[in-house]
Amino acid sequence: MLHKFGYSQYESKVYEALVSGMKPMDATMIVKHSGVPKAKIYEVISKLVEKGIALESVSEKKKLYSALPLPLVIEKLTAEFQADIEQLETYEPQKEFIDDHVWSLKEDTSIEAKLHQSLQQAQKSIRFSAWKADMQKYIPLLEAKEREGIFVEALVVGEVKSQLSHLVFFEPKKEHVTLERFRLLIVDDEEVIFAGEENNEWQAIKTRSQPFVRVFTDYFYHDVLLTKITTKYNDILIHDQEIMAQLLQLKY
């Protein structure tokens, strides 16, 4: 009877015996009518008393037990169920599990799809750097996210037309023979996607590991700052062969 409501099989049998009886019972009678082993009977009765399902009395130094009437049990179970529902409604999930694995992703179309999805899901901030041909695909989405109130920063190797508020261009020189095509996306300071081209094939890593997020964020701002410095002081740097030689070795 009560087994469906979280009570043990023995508890349900004892309650059925008590509620079916015409008068209070002692432990011996309950064993006889319920079929619960004698070794378990006092433990089971004690639990029912604690749960308010059975009533206990002492008559002539003998303990007697009776059942809480079934209508009251139904009322009790209904109230407890409603209380559990209300508690469930106010339950606040624990901190979200963060997957800090580093995942690899291949195929350009898959990488582009993942970049697009992550950009769409951005809630607070976007930092994105890529070459001109790649950046142009995402400019409309980046501009739309900025209009939504998302803070967007972008660095482009090449020059593109855009209304983005924080956009930096890097125009490579013909001497930049070590430059490698890449895409770097950092979303909400929580997720990083870094893609590079090797042997004409794109490969990427994706992770939410915070140490990696911080490293790639520093990497992004390193590129932005270096671009601003070399642009602003180009006339000076171009005459310093040592510095220019080192700058031309960078892969940013």
Rank of each mutant, 00 (worst) to 15 (best):
M1P: 01
Y7M: 12
Y10D: 10
K13E: 14
E16F: 03
M29P: 00
M29F: 06
I30L: 02
S34D: 09
P37Q: 11
P37I: 11
I41T: 08
Y42T: 14
V44P: 12
I45N: 13
I45L: 05
I45P: 14
K47W: 07
K47M: 09
E60H: 12
E60R: 14
K61Q: 15
K62E: 11
L64C: 08
A67H: 05
A67N: 04
L70N: 02
K76G: 01
A79E: 04
T90P: 05
E92L: 06
P93G: 01
V102C: 14
S104R: 15
S110V: 04
E112K: 12
E112S: 08
K124P: 00
I126Q: 06
I139N: 08
P140A: 10
E143M: 09
K145I: 03
V157Y: 01
L164K: 08
E171H: 08
L185R: 04
L185P: 02
L185A: 12
N199P: 09
W202H: 12
I205V: 06
R208T: 02
S209K: 01
V213N: 12
V213P: 00
T217D: 02
T217W: 00
Y221R: 02
T230N: 08
T231L: 05
K232I: 05
E242V: 11
E242H: 04
L247W: 02
Q249R: 13
L250Q: 06
K251G: 05
